[in-house]
């Protein structure tokens, strides 16, 4: 899957699943500080990523993600090796 396709799908998930405003979302945006996504919201996002990209994200990897771009990168590495 192309990186741009992953990013677009990720943004859709943040809007549809977490109810975020599309205009607020950039690849640099930090979940907690910029998007007001708390620890429960991060868990929701990880479940959505696993379901929609058909990947497994272990907790120790999930803990390292702080920005939207990092989430996209992680999904990209899992899908494309």
């Amino acid at each position: 899957m192309e990186r741009s396709e992953i990013e677009a799908k990720l943004v859709d998930l943040l809007v549809d699943e977490l109810g975020l405003e599309r205009d607020d979302i950039t690849m640099e945006a930090k979940f907690e500080e910029d998007l007001d996504v708390d620890s429960l919201g991060v868990v929701e996002l990880l479940m959505a990523l696993e379901d929609n990209f058909d990947v497994k994200i272990p907790d120790e990897e999930a803990e390292k993600i702080t920005t939207v771009g990092e989430a996209a990168e992680m999904v990209s590495q899992k899908l494309n090796g």
Partner: peptide, 8 residues
Amino acid sequence: MPRKDSRR
């Protein structure tokens, strides 16, 4: 309220 809050 914004949907990101109401949905919770």
